[in-house]
Nucleic acid binder design. Structure first.
Lengths: 116, 116
DNA sequence: TTAATACATAAGCACATTATTATCTATCAA
DNA sequence: TTGATAGATAATAATGTGCTTATGTATTAA
């Protein structure tokens, strides 16, 4: 879809609700420009693996993110083919970058250990 | 504030969560260009008066909307002085207009009876 | 084939959110 | 002043959400 507009108020509310969780919002912002795997999210948010997986599932069910398996790892990224991509992007524009969190991971050597 | 940007991811998530309810999102979109009173919302959303008041309270607590008493009625509108106004406006841009709901009210003669 | 790692999913619990019911205050009109 | 209307708020009930624990599947490395 070419525009940022959403066709129904219900759909817009559903997407906003999904982004209305600080963990999910931060994850989505992070994968705006990066591809991340589940274990990285677990390290970054100090959360349990099932908790992260469940957040990702909601985002995937709404087709906001897509997954790519590479060996034993599953990498997540923003779904640019989603009809809501522009809408999400417009929101992320106003959200502070989360790249520091990834840099922190790299500093700890945790990024390389898991993914590459 | 001059920019659409939000300073913290938590605050951004909080606002998105508030807008992530179809009744609240529709109300906020409606008062983007209109001033509405509680009884109008009650008619429009076929909701109870306390339910509407509670939604409005959340929006007011977050300073996204402001109220103006006029006689026995309380009119709500978007708070243009909020530091998150631009952010909210940016989101509303992509949300379908809800003005039809007001027109429907007028057609039923319910708008004039209550407010004016 | 077996063990280990990465991830997904299901069930159950704790907490948050929303709606309802009841009650209270404020304004206005008689 | 009294009654009616608009709205706020408190208490409670119903529902939803997110987390943990337990377990299942896929991939890799031994």
């Amino acid at each position: 879809m070419r525009t940022k507009s959403i066709d129904s108020i219900e759909k817009a509310a559903q997407i906003l609700k999904l982004l209305g969780d600080k963990t999910r919002l931060s994850m989505v912002k992070l994968i705006e420009n990066n591809e991340c795997c589940v274990c990285e999210f677990v390290d970054i948010y100090q959360a349990s693996q099932p908790s992260i997986s469940q957040h990702l599932r909601k985002l995937r069910d709404a087709e906001l993110v897509k997954e790519r398996r590479k060996g034993q790892w599953v990498f997540y990224s923003l779904n640019k083919e989603s009809q809501y991509y522009k809408f999400v992007l417009g929101i992320l524009e106003s959200v502070p970058s989360q790249d520091e969190r990834l840099k922190e991971l790299e500093k700890q050597g945790l990024r390389i250990s898991c993914c590459e």
